[in-house]
Design a protein around this nucleic acid. Structure first.
Lengths: 214, 214, 214, 214
DNA sequence: TATGAATGAGGATTCATTCAT
DNA sequence: CATGAATGAATCCTCATTCAT
């Protein structure tokens, strides 16, 4: 557990980061096929062969770019989920805040385009779909499931299957997101999004905070 | 002289249908960019210029193909929703059946690829996204909202906002669908899907069949 | 020599005329290659195969269209040249009028585009170039040469070679035409054109009305 | 280290020259529309994308090719005009030589096709017409006008408007050129061309070497 | 190592031309 | 006879990818 984390920035790492940071928006704007390696190279301020020396072709660049965005999204989401306030008087408000924060997290930066891009290429390249799901989505759901289980153990919620409950929480709180943001293409009205998220949390609470729960 | 077809099949209509029927799977398999007009022409058994005489370029063909699939999906789904059995002893089982049928409907033919394709191109061509949503998704949700409202009026459900309830029903029953079908690219295990749908309906009922509901 | 001339308009002749009248402007606007048979058919109000039944492909249509325009231009020009007033007190003014009229004639209708089109295709299809020159340009020059010879016989001009003199008259009076009309593409300023024509006639008179001429 | 080339030949400049040199004949032979970029690439010994990297599409290649030919024609013509011998005993013969040389210049290489090509595309692309005229034709006429004015100042010619006289000189000496060379498509009989040029100069001299001129 | 230069492959689109009605 | 429908061929252009510097 020594040097896995923040390696000191070598020039090699810097260029790699610059390319990844440039590729995200370009892929997000144009999609995989329409995004040209030229455009990404120009946006990153490097030349095309440099990209080929860092990544395994366009496909490899795409996969690593998506994985990178997923990882960032995952980190942010993870912090949100694990900081849920479990105390009796706070967990309800905490769930609302969690839902709001998760939604905001999904909508910022290239994260909004992530699912769109990955889904679009899921047929041609199922691996990237699985990997993003495995590295980006499932850990969050697992963490959320754990927190919901804690709320169940505390008698606040009735969660026979925490994984299912977590998924239900996510889809309910994001039920109207595609519609309100045009599939992640536009920003959408914050007020409407807030309201929709709140309705989702309410529905979740009605479904999972049984009459015996406090 | 029978009345099988509401419109008399002209050769013009036939070719058009053949092209649309061929374009759906090709687009679904390859996506918009990778799908070549050549491949669609070959699959339809016509020549490339014929396609250009029937449709307004590749983009026009894509839009009309998506709209066509959405229309078919809409019709089938509409029949399912409107045939919900509202009688006191049947409506619970009816909702389960409805969810199952809707899910099956979403997964058959090119419908599975519809949302993936439309979402993938939503940034480049927002119109197709809106049109498919307007013509294919919203009517179903409206119809479902109407049915849920009837169940509310009958005292079975507690639905202050039927449109929201309908959306919640849909996302809950399809919460695990992307995961189980790899984003619509694979068929998925029917048993797992059935179970997931059932869990979704159960959660919906817990959320919307209040204690006062019978 | 009975029925060579204006045949009574049969429907066949009418359609032929309609096609020729439609083809002229389309060719003139787009050039031979860019002009599509579709556009000509649409402008003529007939269908494409009809054109192929009246003419020998696009090439044949082009040749006959050019020949037709040349014939019209020739007729009008011929009338102008042969109506030159040869009387002692009038011939100088007559030459000016002739030059003006010829220039106006070259600039009206599709005639302005004729030489441009024919010259453009002269390499690919030398026949059309020769034919237009033979049927449209040479007769006029011959007629003009004849008139100049008459003026020579009358002692007004000094024309050892009337054919050369006629050509010199033409090029002098039209010396600035391509420049002023952007190669026949635009109309040009009438005042400038008039002045240029007058300067050309004056130069011609200085060159061919020797000191012995009256 | 010799000074053969004013600019040091970089590989970039070489390829550019090769493409321009190849494009001239191909455009001249086939015209703008029929000339395929493939053919030009093959003639230049480069691949198609290379052309697109050096020029802005087919249109850009055409414009630059025409401008290049015009520049070459202009340079050669300019040298001819400025080397006119103005001495009293030589200027008449000098004008004949100048006319001969200018005519020869117009007929060699791709210059013969230049006006035909540019005129053919003048309607679709007026800019190329104007540019060639501005960069290729007008400077020559201006230089010639200057020389004629000098002859006027020396009392040899009577040139109230040198620009007009220059244009008259050009059109008179080239009056029969289109006819004799089939619009620049064929070489034509040198003897006939010589005779026609001489007749043109003679006519010019009659028109502009007034009785007072020596 | 990083890059400017070059290419082979492939795609959308248009058009002149010909059948079946 | 005139037409709607269909097609084979050919064109422009773009892109991912690889060398020579």
């Amino acid at each position: 557990m020594a040097t896995t984390a923040p390696v000191k920035p070598s020039p090699r790492t810097d260029k790699r980061r610059a390319i990844l940071d440039a590729a995200g928006p370009v892929f997000g704007e144009s999609g995989y096929e329409r995004a040209s390696v030229d455009a990404i190279a120009a946006a990153a301020g490097v030349s095309k062969p440099t990209i080929y020396s860092y990544f395994d072709g366009k496909e490899g660049l795409f996969r690593e770019t998506m994985a990178d965005i997923a990882r960032q999204l995952n980190e942010a989401s993870y912090r949100i989920v694990t900081s849920l306030d479990l105390r009796p008087e706070h967990w309800r408000a905490g769930l609302h805040e969690l839902a709001m924060a998760l939604t905001a997290c999904q909508r910022q930066g290239c994260a909004a385009a992530l699912s769109r891009l990955v889904l679009a290429e899921s047929n041609r390249d199922p691996e990237v779909f699985d990997e993003v799901r495995r590295a980006g989505m499932e850990p969050i759901r697992e963490a959320l499931a754990g927190r919901l289980a804690m709320l169940g153990n505390a008698g606040h919620l009735n969660v026979p299957d925490p994984a299912v409950a977590a998924q239900h929480f996510i889809v309910l709180t994001q039920a109207h997101l595609p519609e309100l943001t045009a599939g992640g293409t536009r920003d959408g009205d914050p007020a409407q999004i807030d309201a929709a998220v709140r309705q989702g949390v309410d529905a979740f609470l009605r479904a999972y905070a049984g009459p015996t729960a406090s």
